[in-house]
Every structure is written in structure tokens, then in C-alpha cells.
Nucleic acid binder design. Structure first.
Lengths: 351, 351
DNA sequence: CTGAAAGCGCTTACAG
DNA sequence: CTGAAAGCGCTTACAG
């Protein structure tokens, strides 16, 4: 007899109102503004609600409140590839910790049937963190149409597009300089994959880093086009790194140093080299980018550029919340630069 | 003049209807069931919608459809600690890849103001994956009240609670046996933290593994209470492992082998030992559990139990979707066991 | 093919 | 303190 109706129909605020003898208004108040009703009413309503196992429908509640209570993070690639880069996991941690702080959930938004735009169109979120978004991408317009605040991490700082970055050009220049100062001239650069987004725009972070490498080379009267320099591309994962490593092993003249734009690639590469019997850094030197925790775990530990993924995520998300609460002017240009630093470990040999 | 109203008010289906001259019904059909209206109507409506930058409000749409289009994953701890265990990241990858396949987003649900129950109450999701949930936990009732399908990974298989597990007891017994067969008798076990959830129920996975260790010990006429066995607890992170390592270094009589219930703990522990100048496995042997990719990266590579985190996530999520679509009977008992295997590498020395 | 209208389950001015 | 009623912006039988 208890489940004569709970069996089929969801119980709503109406049921609680009817059974308790109070109005829907009072029931709503009992949950959301307890002090606005008498203790007697409140107690009865709560009791009835508990007896019936009533839980306010989040769908209706959110709709009424016009809030999703969630922040989305727009993944540039499929979820698998995104999360197989520990650096991305680090960013997600940062984003998540701020969401948690404000009682929000974190929604991971993968492309919907290959379409990032469609995913954004339907995503149930109040704000968006994007990874590596460029101003020319179509999806930017969709986000703006939706009128939800967004901040992009590792994108190109441009008007109306709040951003969090490190100084990628300087960082890349610094690490290349370190390699050159160690005497290396035969160098292979393992770059990131072309942005295969809906527009085919290039990734500005990759671009800036390339420029930085080039600037350092210039100081040695070299450039990216020099015959001593080889440029490859790899997916951001261990496997991507292994494939790059295999490709390097097949090169006619082996480089003395390999510069990777991502630590996870460097680690994969390093594993491939070691599997082939090479000793690092004696036979070949390696440097990376990111300073993921794994870089300190491997042997030899990786010389790299430290950039704070968690911090990027946190700052981006705090900014999104400020935008949501209207605490900052969203017409203003918010371009936050976080510090990087060079971490010297054992993977780079001085010739 | 274009923004005379778009400035203040969101544009809705009503605006499109008014301006296009068609009804709300037709506008809705234009987006959701294009073939139900004439090409002429469809084209005009789409055009007007595009001109005005109309995007259907996800809040309203979801409410009408009674679907969130998202699957939640209930994090047992704060987001930071959860994601700093690569094994959890692996599970999330698995869950995410299935969500993506069906066009759903993945919502990470951290405790809301410390309360997991409140988080579940308000979470905007159509189904739930839980990590390490026990039948006696309060939150189970909340999930049931919500009447949303859920599957628990690494929880205790019980009635009405679909589950994905490995055979933890056997796995633990196998790895302990390996250690004992290698001649070790002075052993420290680093266990997982007590479930500090709202009820203080113990974690059944930890329990099963302990039982497994004990069974193997029994075959050597020992048990968990033997004087040669020490049991510690550590947080599931590198740092947790380092702390455990430091504690072990301070023990009066140093063990010859350390058995960790999690690879990330084993790795942290190993780092601490190495920092103290110990050679592994010569001075001390290590084994772990999970077989995260990092375990193959460290030197010496870790001997451990391989369990497929991604696969657990995928299977759990496929089951949730089957439950959502009503393809399987949710009264039936769904208890899936996935295989594990022992991975022998270089961190265990035969005495 | 098209549209008027009910309905999804809440919240919240507003009046009493 | 309490309640009637409007409103949030869609979807979808139903009738024409």
C-alpha cells in the first residue's frame, strides 16, 4: 500500500503539498528557505517528504533556477587521448578542485558525433573551460551565442577571450638554449599534432614554442630549417612518443638531442630508445615540456620545462566563476600569465 | 537595431516562431524532426534561427525530455586526491569513452559540502558510476530514491547493486604467494585508508585483499597478526607512498619486502627508499597492485597485479546504459568479474 | 503539413 | 506565516 503510486509515478512537490496539507509554495520554502515558514509546517512537510522518499527533481529545479550547477571542460580530443596525457589530468584536477569548492560538478565534454560545436550547443553547463582554443575556431561563436562565460587555457590570447597561458615562446627558447649550450647541434624536435579541429587552424601554443626554439637557434646562427634540425610530430601519449622514437631511430643521421613539446611524448620516446639499447643521455639526450610527475619518476629523470597544470586549471576556473557572478567585467581583457621554470635533471648530456 | 532585444533577453523558440510566422511546434520540429514539416517552412525557420543566433536552451530541452544526457561518476574523495591516482584516471577514461560513444557527457561529482548524499541528490545525471560503494552506505538509499541506474566499481557485490570487480582476494593471495615463494618473511603491507565516508563502513576491496594476503600467509603457517608482518595505511598518491616509505625506514626491524595495495603508493614508497640510498630490490623488495602505466616506467619496474581500469570503467558504463534503455532487467543481479593477472618485473628479489 | 494547448516540476514575486 | 498563480522554454499528443 505504500507503493501504490510510488510504483509508477515519481513523487513531486504536489504530492507533498497534498499530503501535508500545505501549499507547493510552503513545501518549496521548507527546502529552500526554511525560516520563511513556521516550525510546525516545516517539520510536517519534511516528515512527509522523508516518508515518501521525496527528492526535488534536479531537472525541474535547474530549469527554474536557470542554473546547471556545473562547469564544463571542453576536451580538444576524444576523452581517451585527452586523459592519457597526465598534464591534462593535472589541469582537470585544478578545474575540479575549484568546482568542488563552489559546490559545482565538473562536466567533461567530448566532441558530440565528431562535432565540438554541437557538443557545446547542448552542454548542460554554466561556464566553460576550453583547452587550446583559437579565436578563429567556429566553436567560439557557438560559445558566445550561448552567452556562457568561458576561459581558455593554452589558447591564443585575443580580445574577448579570457586566457591562461605561460610564456611559451620564452620557455621554449630557454630549453632550446640549454640544449645548444650543452653543445648539441644535431637536434630533432618532436612537435604536437596539428589542430585537427573543424577549421584546421593551427595551434598557437605549438607555434609559439616553435618560434622560441627558432630564436634560440638563431643565436647560434641556425634556424628551424637548418639541415641539422629535424622536425617530427607525435600524439600526446606514451604511444605517440614511442612511435616518434622509432622514427628517430630510423633516421639516416641520428640526432644527439631530442626536444619534445610534451613530457609524455619524451617519456615514450625514451622508452623506445632504451628498448633499442641506447643509453640516455650518453647515446642521446632528451628534454621535454610540462614537468608531469612521471618525469621525475623515470630514469634518467627528465630535464624539462615546469608549467603548473593544476594552477592553470584553478585560475581559469576561478575566473569563470567571477564571470558567472558578474564580479568582473567580461568586456575587459583577462589574460593571465602563470610562471614556468626550467628543471634540470639527468637526461641532457653536455657534449 | 539587431541587438535591440538580443541585448537583454535570451531569444527563444517563441521569437523564432513569431518572426518566421510559423508556430512553436513547427520550429521545434525544424530542429528535432525536420521531415515532419515542409521544406519551405524548415528552410525559413532555420534561416531565422541562424540570423538570430538561436540555440535551444539545454535547460528547457532537458527538462522537457526528462534527460540530462550525462552520466555521473561519484568520486569517493576530493577531486584532487581521486585524480592523483592514475588508476582512477584510467577508470574515468573508460567511463568517458562509453559516454562519448553514446553522445553523453561525463559529470565528475565531488562531495557537496562534504556530503556525498547531497551531491547525489542534486546531480544532473541519468546514471551513476560509483567507486567503492558498500551496500550499507547511506548514499545508496539516495541513489535508489532518485531511481537512476547505477553500477559500482570495486564495491561489494550485493543484491540490487550491479557491480564490476576483479577477484581481489585471489589476486592478493597470488601476489603475496609470489613474495613468500621468493623467500620473504619479514613483510610490511601498505593498505588503503579506511573508508571515511558518512557511515564509516569498511572498504570491502581492502578487506578482500587482506583476506587474500592472509590466505597465502596461512600456507606458510603465518597470518596477518604474525610478528613478522607489519600493516600500515597510506593515501593513494605518490605522497602517501612517500610517507609510508619514511615510516618503514623508521621501523625497528626493516622488512625485506613491502607489499602495497596500490601502485602509486608503491612508487612513492620506492622513491623514498631510493632517496634514502636503498637499492631496490637488493636492499628491499617491492610489489604493488593495479599495474598503472607508471609501474612500467620506474626503475626497477614494479612487479604487480594487473587489473584493467579502463575496462572496468567501460563495462560499468555499458551496463548503466543498458539499464537506462531498459534493455536489461534491473531486478536481476549484475555482477561482472573482469580478469586480473600477475605481472612480474624487477622489483622483487628472490632471497 | 501545421498549430493550439497541455505538460514537464519546480521557484518566486505578490497579495493577504 | 501562507497560498494562488505565473513563469521558466521547451516537447508532443492531438485535432484539423
Amino acid at each position: 500500500m505504500d507503493d501504490k503510486k510510488s510504483k509508477n509515478k515519481r513523487i513531486t512537490i504536489n504530492d507533498i503539498a497534498r499530503i501535508s496539507g500545505y501549499s507547493k509554495t510552503s513545501v518549496s520554502f521548507a527546502f529552500n528557505e526554511p525560516k520563511r515558514i513556521s516550525e510546525k509546517a516545516r517539520n510536517l512537510i519534511i516528515k512527509v517528504a522523508e516518508d515518501l522518499g521525496y527528492i526535488p527533481d534536479p531537472l525541474a529545479r535547474n530549469f527554474s533556477l536557470r542554473k546547471h550547477h556545473s562547469i564544463g571542460i571542453l576536451l580538444p580530443q576524444l576523452i581517451n587521448s585527452a586523459l592519457s596525457n597526465p598534464f591534462v589530468a593535472q589541469v582537470i584536477q585544478g578545474v575540479g578542485s575549484v568546482c568542488q569548492k563552489y559546490g559545482y560538478t565538473l562536466t567533461l565534454i567530448p566532441p558530440l558525433n565528431e562535432s565540438v560545436s554541437d557538443a557545446v550547443r547542448t552542454a548542460a553547463v554554466d561556464g566553460l573551460i576550453t583547452l587550446g582554443m583559437e579565436a578563429e575556431m567556429k566553436v567560439v561563436n557557438v560559445i558566445r551565442q550561448r552567452k556562457i562565460p568561458y576561459v581558455t587555457i593554452d589558447g591564443s590570447p585575443s580580445a574577448n577571450m579570457p586566457s591562461i597561458n605561460i610564456r611559451d615562446r620564452e620557455a621554449a627558447k630557454d630549453i632550446m638554449k640549454l640544449v645548444l649550450d650543452a653543445g648539441h647541434r644535431q637536434i630533432t624536435i618532436v612537435s604536437l599534432p596539428e589542430g585537427d579541429d573543424e577549421l584546421g587552424v593551427h595551434d598557437s601554443v605549438t607555434w609559439f614554442r616553435m618560434e622560441g626554439y627558432n630564436e634560440a637557434l638563431a643565436e647560434c646562427s641556425m634556424c628551424l630549417e637548418s639541415t641539422e634540425i629535424t622536425i617530427l610530430t607525435a600524439e600526446c601519449s606514451i604511444d605517440g612518443g614511442k612511435k616518434a622514437g622509432a622514427a628517430i631511430l630510423k633516421e639516416f643521421s641520428r640526432p644527439t638531442a631530442v626536444i619534445c613539446m610534451s613530457d609524455i611524448i619524451a617519456i615514450g620516446c625514451q622508452q623506445e630508445f632504451q628498448a633499442a639499447g641506447l643509453i640516455i643521455p650518453n647515446d642521446i639526450s632528451m628534454v621535454g615540456f610540462d614537468n608531469i610527475i612521471e618525469s621525475a619518476m623515470v630514469t634518467p629523470a627528465l630535464t624539462t620545462v615546469d608549467q603548473p597544470g593544476g594552477e592553470k586549471g584553478r585560475q581559469a576556473t576561478e575566473l569563470v566563476f567571477q564571470l558567472i557572478r558578474g564580479e568582473v567585467d567580461d568586456a575587459a581583457h583577462h589574460h593571465i600569465i602563470v610562471p614556468y621554470r626550467i628543471i634540470q635533471r639527468q637526461s641532457l648530456k653536455t657534449l
